[in-house]
Simulated assay, not measured.
Amino acid sequence: MPVRTGGAPPGTPWCCSKPFGRWGEVFGETVATVVLDRLVHHAEVHSLKGDSYRMRGLEGAVLVTARGGSASRLCG
């Protein structure tokens, strides 16, 4: 087994479109708290704000769903 010369192994970058405060809506408050505690312990957290580069130029675009679902606005 190789010997490391110090420090933790390099981290894995994670990204999510939901802020940490809204993770409880997806996972439930208890699970979200535990998962976030493990993810951000010794982590360097960067929060990016602003318009999505991926969604640029889609002002007023409409999302059409398959199988007769209702359409909804993506932006604006």
Score class of each variant (00 low, 15 high):
53 Y>K: 11
48 L>P: 06
41 H>K: 05
6 G>L: 01
57 G>V: 00
50 G>D: 04
21 G>N: 14
9 P>T: 03
23 W>H: 10
15 C>E: 14
49 K>D: 07
60 G>Y: 02
54 R>Q: 05
40 V>G: 04
75 C>P: 00
24 G>W: 06
67 R>G: 05
48 L>C: 12
64 V>S: 10
15 C>D: 14
7 G>V: 00
18 K>W: 15
59 E>G: 05
25 E>D: 13
27 F>W: 10
8 A>S: 03
15 C>S: 15
5 T>A: 02
74 L>Q: 04
11 G>I: 03
62 V>H: 02
9 P>C: 00
32 A>F: 06
35 V>G: 07
4 R>N: 01
54 R>K: 09
66 A>K: 13
63 L>Q: 02
76 G>F: 09
71 A>I: 01
56 R>M: 09
52 S>P: 06
74 L>K: 07
57 G>R: 04
26 V>I: 13
34 V>H: 13
61 A>Q: 02
67 R>M: 02
41 H>I: 03
14 W>M: 14
8 A>F: 00
4 R>Y: 03
27 F>G: 07
69 G>W: 10
10 P>V: 06
64 V>H: 08
54 R>S: 06
66 A>M: 05
32 A>I: 06
5 T>V: 02
5 T>I: 00
68 G>A: 02
29 E>A: 11
2 P>T: 12
62 V>L: 07
39 L>Y: 06
41 H>V: 02
17 S>Q: 14
30 T>K: 15
20 F>G: 11
34 V>P: 07
56 R>N: 02
64 V>G: 00
43 A>D: 12
2 P>E: 11
62 V>P: 00
10 P>A: 05
61 A>F: 09
75 C>S: 11
55 M>I: 12
9 P>S: 01
22 R>T: 13
46 H>D: 14
32 A>P: 07
23 W>Q: 08
26 V>H: 08
1 M>K: 07
44 E>L: 14
24 G>K: 08
9 P>F: 00
47 S>H: 07
47 S>L: 12
13 P>A: 13
10 P>D: 01
65 T>E: 12
23 W>S: 09
71 A>M: 08
67 R>A: 11
7 G>D: 02
25 E>P: 03
49 K>G: 11
3 V>L: 11
48 L>H: 10
10 P>Y: 02
76 G>R: 13
33 T>D: 14
34 V>A: 15
43 A>H: 12
1 M>Y: 04
69 G>K: 11
74 L>M: 09
30 T>Q: 15
69 G>N: 04
29 E>I: 06
9 P>M: 00
50 G>F: 04
48 L>R: 08
36 L>V: 03
28 G>H: 01
19 P>L: 05
25 E>G: 03
24 G>F: 04
51 D>N: 14
60 G>Q: 02
74 L>P: 01
53 Y>W: 11
19 P>I: 04
67 R>C: 01
30 T>C: 11
1 M>W: 07
11 G>D: 08
63 L>E: 05
12 T>A: 08
44 E>C: 13
65 T>R: 15
42 H>K: 15
68 G>Y: 03
34 V>F: 10
27 F>H: 10
26 V>E: 13
20 F>A: 13
7 G>E: 00
54 R>W: 03
60 G>C: 01
57 G>M: 01
13 P>W: 11
